[in-house]
């Protein structure tokens, strides 16, 4: 970018396509309302929430947080690379990001499996209802994000993007970071603070 004149402030546009940002804002609104509902429902069911929260798998939760953060980081590097016209490096970073996403999915499935085998369902109690809804809804976003990443990975690998034209990569990256951002709040909220 050029050095800007002191009097003229030059803003960058939002990275990626504007439509994805409208989508991101809408998604954040949905998650925001879910988080707020959780926090206030807990306030009125304190004992229940505090009791059952102990049985959540904090280790998997923490590992998954690190995985998503790392994945986001790889995707940042992928965007950096494509801006320098290095599409093969970019594809490699994207593949690493995708791999972390896949690992997240595996850990999450194991965690859900454990809960389900204990006979926990949406009807068990209001805490598990929220736990399953929040993590389950987020889980589906991880899957959607991975589909998008896989799509841009293939296109990057086929050298369809370059330094001048990489809107697609930035669009996918923005969505993926949103999935990360949501988990950053979800993990301490549901697994940690009491």
């Amino acid at each position: 970018m050029n050095h800007t004149d002191k009097n003229i402030v030059q803003y960058k546009p939002l990275p990626g396509d504007f439509a994805i940002w409208v989508f991101i804002f809408a998604e954040l609104l949905v998650f925001g309302i879910l988080f707020i509902s959780y926090a206030f429902t807990r306030k009125y069911n304190l004992e229940l929430f505090n009791h059952h929260q102990q049985f959540l798998d904090r280790e998997t939760g923490a590992i998954n947080t690190v995985l998503l953060i790392t994945s986001s980081y790889f995707v940042v590097r992928a965007v950096d690379a494509i801006k320098k016209n290095m599409s093969q490096q970019s594809a490699r970073w994207l593949a690493l990001g995708l791999l972390c996403g896949a690992a997240f999915v595996v850990f999450k499935i194991l965690e859900f499996n454990e809960k389900f085998s204990e006979g926990i369902t949406l009807s068990t109690n209001i805490f598990y209802m929220f736990y399953l809804c929040l993590t389950g809804f987020h889980f589906m976003h991880v899957l959607l994000g991975m589909v998008i990443l896989a799509f841009i990975l293939v296109k990057t690998h086929r050298r369809k993007y370059n330094a001048d034209d990489h809107d697609g990569v930035e669009t996918g990256a923005s969505y993926w970071h949103m999935v990360d951002l949501v988990w950053i709040i979800l993990f301490p909220l549901v697994y940690i603070i009491r």
Partner: peptide, 23 residues
């Protein structure tokens, strides 16, 4: 914990999502 959420979220938004320098 909430302070660390703020710091983390801030950096993801500003640096990873790349909102730093936008409108």
């Amino acid at each position: 914990v909430l302070a660390s959420v703020l710091i983390k979220g801030h950096h993801i938004i500003a640096d990873f999502m790349g909102l730093r320098g936008t409108e």
